[in-house]
């Protein structure tokens, strides 16, 4: 049994939230910079240059990469030999986020109720997903996400026999409909299988996978590249203003499903995809 004090969690979450909102992940930055190699539209190149400069300014001056510092999602992997002392884990995570949004001068973008819509003024509550794992470690992946890209995701319950072709058609339909709104160049997360809830969880997990890693299954790694090529041939381009770089990567995850089901969820993430993983 290992004891972790909730105060320690609060401080580490607060620091990680500030980092997530101000420092673009290296794999994302590199992929954006790489777009300059093959992007030949002048406007697209200018936009990419500004996005790269934006990342430098945000990191060096501690400013939010994007003013939409979003709703925070925390994916918890809790080792079953860990015992948390003090407040509950949920309270500690929310407190860490509360501290970070005030200290970082981040925008409070959360309303208390989807219909009544009163701002909570501290960017809580946080969405927390728990996974219980073996071991003595507590790992937290923190991802603040804006609504521009989150609003453009979709779910479809396809007929099983449409196979990969049907999945591809659906993904392209979602990306076309989203067009400029999710702030391309985007990262496309695709979840295939399970049921309704599982497909969405898979897509959300896929979008957080580092974009320089391909799926371990060969047929899915090939499918990711096939989708990326097809998406970039759409010509939507950076900010939807035309060009070759509509997506930086497509990440696909799969899970077992029912004999009568082929659920597919597509979650889109902007070029300012923010994520930090901490291990306590």
């Amino acid at each position: 049994m290992r004891f972790i004090n909730s105060q320690d969690i609060i401080e580490k979450v607060a620091a990680a939230v500030i980092k997530a909102n101000t420092v673009l992940p290296t794999d994302v930055f590199k992929a954006i910079a790489n777009a300059l190699v093959y992007e030949d539209s002048l406007t697209a190149r200018n936009i990419i240059e500004i996005i790269l400069q934006n990342a430098h300014i945000a990191e060096s001056e501690g400013m939010a990469i994007c003013q939409d510092t979003g709703l925070v999602v925390v994916n918890v992997c809790l080792g079953q030999d860990v015992h948390i002392v003090g407040t509950s884990l949920e309270t500690a995570i929310n407190e860490g986020v509360r501290i970070a949004y005030k200290a970082g001068y981040f925008r409070n973008s959360v309303v208390n109720d989807p219909i009544l819509r009163v701002n909570t003024n501290d960017n809580t509550p946080v969405i927390i997903n728990y996974q219980l794992v073996s071991g003595k470690e507590l790992s937290l992946t923190i991802s603040p996400k804006g609504a521009g890209s989150e609003n453009m995701g979709q779910l479809a319950m396809l007929k099983p026999l449409v196979g990969l072709k049907g999945v591809k058609d659906f993904v392209l339909e979602v990306v076309k409909k989203a067009s400029a709104n999710p702030c391309p160049p985007i990262i496309v997360g695709v979840g295939i299988g399970g049921n309704m809830e599982k497909a969405v969880q898979l897509a959300k997990g896929a979008v957080l996978r580092p974009i320089n890693l391909r799926n371990e299954l060969a047929y899915l790694a090939d499918f990711e590249l096939e989708l990326l090529k097809a998406i970039n041939e759409l010509g939507i381009g950076p900010q939807g203003l035309g060009g070759r770089t509509t997506a930086l990567a497509v990440n696909v995850e799969v899970f077992a499903t029912h004999i009568a089901s082929l659920p597919v969820a597509v979650n889109l993430s902007c070029h300012a995809t923010r994520r930090v993983t901490i291990r306590i």
Binding site: I50, I51, N54, M63, A64, I65, C66, A180, G240, C270
Partner: peptide, 29 residues
């Protein structure tokens, strides 16, 4: 940022106005 509805395009013509896009996700810049 992003496209507008057909009604907005018609109103832009009617009132001789302009719609400009700037760079989403470049808030610090």
């Amino acid at each position: 940022k992003g496209n507008r509805a057909e009604d907005v395009v018609k109103a832009i013509i009617k009132y001789q106005a302009i719609y400009l896009a700037t760079i989403g996700g470049a808030g610090a810049y």
